[in-house]
Design a binder for these strands. Structure first.
Lengths: 338, 338
DNA sequence: TTTAGCACTCTCCGCTTTTGATTGCTAAAC
DNA sequence: GTTTAGCAATCAAAAGCGGAGAGTGCTAAA
């Protein structure tokens, strides 16, 4: 076995062992566990080299090796796209795609729960969001005397609602007529189209149009749909976070609004799974973690994000293959809604 | 000062001190901090009595006192309804009620966030749910060839949607007619009304009605609307949970589905704030916590729950008054939607 | 280049001691 | 009868110690 080759094997062994055991591994253990045909002293030379090159560190002078961020990055590039989810799990995922998708949100949660169970870490899924939302349908329902509920359906099956109050009492009949008229006039338009369309409008029509534009503009401004987290218990149950005050910082960020944007804004991964390891994350509180995420959806139409958040020490192979699998599942499902 | 009276003061001091400091209090500290006109030895006699009666315990023989569940229960009954939220905070709450309530869900989150900041603990709010849901309005939007989006508006402004697939291509015009017809036929009905109403229906009408009934029946079966948690970081940041494996059990329960029902099923509090302290909770994993919750909404129409979850050592006075304040705020807001 | 051998380093565990906080008890004072 | 002062007793937490064990670094030989 060539020297260069063995060093790579050693690094791989260190990483994979740390992923399962979460503890430093000794040179002798590397030899034994993985049946290498050299002595522990040789491995020590290799780990010394790996340490000089920044792939491993040791908690103290006489301790085993643990991988660095650089090692994980190397490992992720190495395993790359080669991996596929085992049959059993592919079958599980297939099953769930068959399930009745009554409510999109409800279904997304089921999907998130399954993925979380599979990868034993925190999962985030955002609802799919249209790139540029277009108006499809509008509906008005009378509430109390002066009030009505405005329901707006956008392409990609997004539904928004808002309460309007009018200056006068408006009957349900009137409201239905208003709704039908505006639906046929605005059908297929973007918010700027609607804004541009200056027709003579009644006072109520104007008011409704304004709300409509506002709703659509707000929607356009968002980078992502509503994020949904599942499996916090799995993340916090990881040995690196029990008895650690860092979990508070992590929770703080995760409960905030902007962390998803901040992380994924730089560039969208072209097709594959984006991997952010430790220090690569701009958010300091999350630098003990790795985030893996994949976009799903229909290109140029609507897209969402499905991701996994866990300790840097995570089963990248499994998570990447799971994410690939789930993102196609979700894409197929979104395609139906459009 | 009568003896009985002083003992009550001592107990109150112990509780209030523990609420702020989270550590056992010594007899001498009780005297000093609260300027009592007796010696520490006297207080020791009192705490010995309180311990015999089960109001306080001590971590070990020579440690200060900490309150028991019984003490908290006593304390809650004592302060009862006497308390009002300070002016500044009432003003804050008032402010938020003015804010634009575009999306109910969005607004509920804002409310939850404010409440969480105020009480520095985990807040749970469920969306308001109709006691028995009645059909108000229905809408059909064409998606792909054989598919359509069914949008159902129920009284109390609940909106549900579902994707339907038909055996044949149905145009938007047809769908609109179908929607108008069914809306006028079923207006104001409950799911059983609709089920009972056997008219001659076309195949599509029958299919839609079935979906409709299914949606409404599912809705009726639920005890609560969608629960929304805010402020997990505040709960887990409490000193009793740092470095404690119990948080995992708590998270597990909180990420589950049924814990809210299990806790509040017994009896609904008549108007006020329901307080569940420690062991009073049927769920073992939550017995280190206290839950306080209040129903909001319009009686016999729609209601939701707003609650606070924190360590047993929590500022009951503040939380109870906050909950009272917020539940009227939410009730007023729901009243508008009905 | 690899290996055996050995000294060295450092953590972890358990043990003991010390320190300091706090109470329980008793006898005297109010 | 209640309250108090005083003091011994109790206990947790911190600090110190020492040895076992795990593991490496280095050197010299294979």
């Amino acid at each position: 076995m060539a020297l260069r080759e063995r060093r790579e094997t050693v690094l791989r062994v260190i990483i994979e062992d740390y992923i399962t055991r979460a503890a430093p591994i000794a040179s002798s253990a590397i030899v034994e566990k993985y049946g290498l045909k050299v002595s522990s002293a040789t491995i020590r030379n290799d780990t010394a080299y790996l340490e000089r090159e920044g792939y491993v560190v040791r908690p103290h002078r006489s301790a085993g090796s643990i991988p660095t961020d650089k090692a994980y990055r190397y490992y992720v590039e190495l395993i790359g796209a080669e991996i596929e989810l085992p049959r059993v799990e592919q079958y599980l995922v297939h099953q769930i795609s068959q399930e009745a998708k009554e409510e999109l949100e409800q279904w997304l949660r089921t999907v998130a729960a399954l993925l979380a169970r599979l990868v034993r870490n925190l999962v985030v899924i955002t609802t799919p969001k249209a790139v540029r939302c277009r108006f499809k349908h509008l509906d008005l329902v009378a509430l109390q005397d002066f009030m009505a509920l405005l329901i707006v359906v956008l392409y990609e099956a997004e539904v928004r609602r808002q309460v309007l109050s009018f200056d006068r009492k408006v009957s349900q009949d009137e409201l239905t007529k208003l709704a039908n008229k505006l639906t046929s006039v605005y059908g297929g338009m973007t918010s700027s189209d609607i804004l541009a369309k200056r027709e003579k409008l009644s006072s109520e029509e104007r008011q409704i149009s304004e709300s409509l534009v506002e709703i659509m503009a707000t929607q356009d401004k968002l980078d992502y749909g509503e994020p949904y987290l599942e499996g916090l218990r799995l993340l916090l149950g990881q040995p690196e976070f029990t008895n650690s005050p860092r979990i508070l910082g992590i929770l703080e960020v995760l409960e905030g609004e902007d962390w998803l944007r901040n992380i994924f804004s730089q560039e969208s991964s072209r097709g594959g799974v984006k991997v952010v390891i430790g220090d690569e994350n701009p958010e300091p509180a999350l630098q003990d973690l790795s985030l893996l995420a994949s976009q799903y959806g229909v290109p140029d139409k609507a897209s969402g994000i499905v991701g996994v958040i866990g300790p840097k020490r995570m089963d990248y192979a499994k998570v990447i293959s799971s994410l690939n699998c789930f993102s196609t599942l979700l894409s197929d499902s979104v395609a139906e809604y459009i």
